[in-house]
Every structure is written in C-alpha cells, then in structure tokens.
C-alpha cells in the first residue's frame, strides 16, 4: 500500500472537506478498497473514515425507506422492514460475499465496488479502467466474469454487485452530499455511467461527494425474487443474476421491474424489458420475447458467449416463478 493519512471526522461536512483532494478516498467497510490498495490498484494518499458520521441508521419515511450509507450488508439484510417490504434486497445481499464480508461491507461501498476483471486487478497488464489509455487486456484475454451488455471497445468490465441489482429493480436512489454541504438525490438509473471511452469514470459522483444514504420507494410489486447463478454453491460472484419485482392483477402483469447481475457493465435494467411485460398475460412466448429484447444488443466474446443462453433461461425461470 502507498502511505496515506487517515482522518476520522465526526461531522459530515468535515469528512467531505477532508476528501476533496485529488487523491483522497472515503473508507467505511474497506472490504473492496483495502483489497485494491494492497495491490496498488487504488493508491489514495488520504483516507477519510466515515464510520463515525452516524450514517448507519435505517429509517422509515413516507416514501419508503432511507438506508444510511454505512449500514452494513448484514444489518440491511436482517432488517425486518427490508425482509418484509423489500425481500428481494435481503435475498440479493444474502446471495453475496460471505458472512464476514457482509458484516463489514456497507451499503454505499457496495454500490461503488469495483469490477472483478482479473486484468483490472493485475497492474502488469493493460486496463483502461485502472490506467486510462493503456488498453484492454480482457478483450483478447481470458473472459468469464465479464459483461456482455453496456460494454465498449475500451472495456468489458462487469459490475459485480448483487445488492445493487436488487436496488435497481426497486427503483432506488442515492442521496449525495458534497463539501459545501449541498445534498442531491440521484436515481440509480442515472448514477452509473457506461464505460464508453472513459471506463475509469464509473458514476456521476463529483469530487469530494459522498453517498450518505440510499432511498427505497415502496416496492412496486409484492412478488419479489432474486436468483443467482454461480460457479460454486456459495461465496462466488454471479455468472448471471436476476432480480424481479412484480405485481399481478387479474392474471396480467401490472408492474414489472427486472434487473440483472453478471451481464452488464453496471447493475443492469432495461426499461424495454419491463415495458414488454407490463399489461401482458404470462406465457412462454412472452418470456422468450423478454429474453430476446434483453439480449438484443449483447456483445459477446469467446469466454462470455454462454451468458446469452444462460441469461435468457434464468430470466424465463424467474418470470415463471414470479408470475405463478
């Protein structure tokens, strides 16, 4: 690790001020940041500990739920309100990482976790995300945990989160705060960027800006499922995952929100998939169509080609389950 200063402020404004510099980073759980710092993939010269800012509460409000940024993945998954009203979120969290990691990893950090692309992790190889302009070793390298949706010629890195996938299906938004104390809310659909030519820029966070909370509106559907496919029974990243939030009315799909992990450069949601389903009667033909729409712009490589049929099959299975 590169040497760094560490501050542990107790005020939000101080934390944002401390972290305003070019090479400063917030740290809460640290499960991803310290991992990357040890490999010098991340090299901040300053860390601001945000664990003392009181951002670790979960509150119910008129719109839904406000989840503090430093609420741990464990606490969030176990929260009875979440288990009752937003079960897809609990399920997604419980499908991710390990018990130990969930006890440390936080809500804000999970949203910002970096890709698991092995070339991003390897400072001896080219990676446009880690070293802009250096190239992408993954394009002609070994692919498996890479994206097929939202990719570019510069980057096929996958967003690895489970939690964020459920949050996208739940129409979550993030609450941000900057050094001036300015606060804003951004829907997750507008929070992440596609890699394009600048894969190093993953979100629309501004310098010094901190995620202070995630807002979950009341769930649009009572039928919620999270299904994850992985290479072993537990403790592995998703090959494909699907979060589904549905409401049925009179035998038809009244509300559909599908989000996907293991496929996209960001936690993936495709409004056209949802639109296709809404108002329709569940059928195999409809589910097949949803799969076709989802994959219409997929860009596959040798190592990721399997994700198209796998993604479609899992989507179909989830839709069958959730509409049954």
């Amino acid at each position: 690790m590169r040497p760094f200063d560490l501050t542990r402020p107790e005020e939000l404004s101080a934390a944002c001020r401390d972290t305003n510099g070019e090479n400063a980073a917030f740290i809460a759980g640290g499960t991803n940041l310290i991992d990357l710092m040890k490999l010098e993939v991340e090299t901040p010269g300053h860390l601001t500990d945000i664990s003392r800012l009181g951002l670790d509460g979960i509150e119910t409000d008129a719109q839904g739920l406000r989840i503090g940024a430093t609420v741990t993945n464990s606490d969030l998954a176990a929260d009875t309100r979440v288990r009752e009203g937003w079960p897809v979120l609990s399920r997604a969290l419980l499908a991710g990482a390990s018990g130990q990691l969930r006890n440390k990893a936080t809500t804000g950090g999970n949203l910002l976790q970096r890709t698991r692309c092995p070339y991003f992790y390897d400072t001896d190889t080219a990676c446009n995300k880690r070293a802009p302009g250096s190239g992408c070793a993954a394009l002609k390298g070994e692919q498996r945990n890479h994206a097929i949706l939202g990719t570019s010629d510069h980057c096929i890195a996958l967003h690895p989160s489970d939690m964020a996938v459920a949050m996208r299906a739940l129409d979550a938004s993030v609450e941000l705060c900057d050094a001036e104390g300015e606060s804003r809310r951004v829907g997750l659909e507008k929070f992440y960027r596609l890699p394009g030519k600048t894969p190093e820029r993953e979100t629309h966070l501004r310098p010094g800006e901190l995620i202070t909370a995630v807002h979950l509106p009341k769930a649009g559907g009572d039928r919620q499922v999270y299904r994850k496919v992985r290479d072993r029974a537990s403790y592995a990243f998703a090959l494909v995952s699907v979060a589904a939030v549905l409401r049925m009315k009179g035998g038809r799909i009244a509300h559909a929100a599908l989000a996907f992990g293991g496929l996209g450069t960001q936690p993936w949601r495709d409004p056209e998939v949802d639109a296709l389903l809404e108002g329709e009667t569940p059928s195999q033909a409809l589910f097949d169509k949803a799969g076709e729409v989802l994959m219409r712009d997929a860009v596959v490589h040798e190592g990721t080609a399997f994700k198209v049929p796998l993604g479609k099959r899992v989507l179909t299975a989830v839709l069958k389950e959730v509409t049954a």
Partner: peptide
Amino acid sequence: TVIAGGRRINSCLSLAALHD
C-alpha cells in the same frame, strides 16, 4: 476471522486504525 465489536470479520481487510 476475528470477532470485532461482536461481529465476525476478516481482519485482513480492516485497518487497525479503524478499530481504535
């Protein structure tokens, strides 16, 4: 794995200074 603040965690991914 150790127990910190009553919870099991990976002590390798945690800075000592954050456990003051």
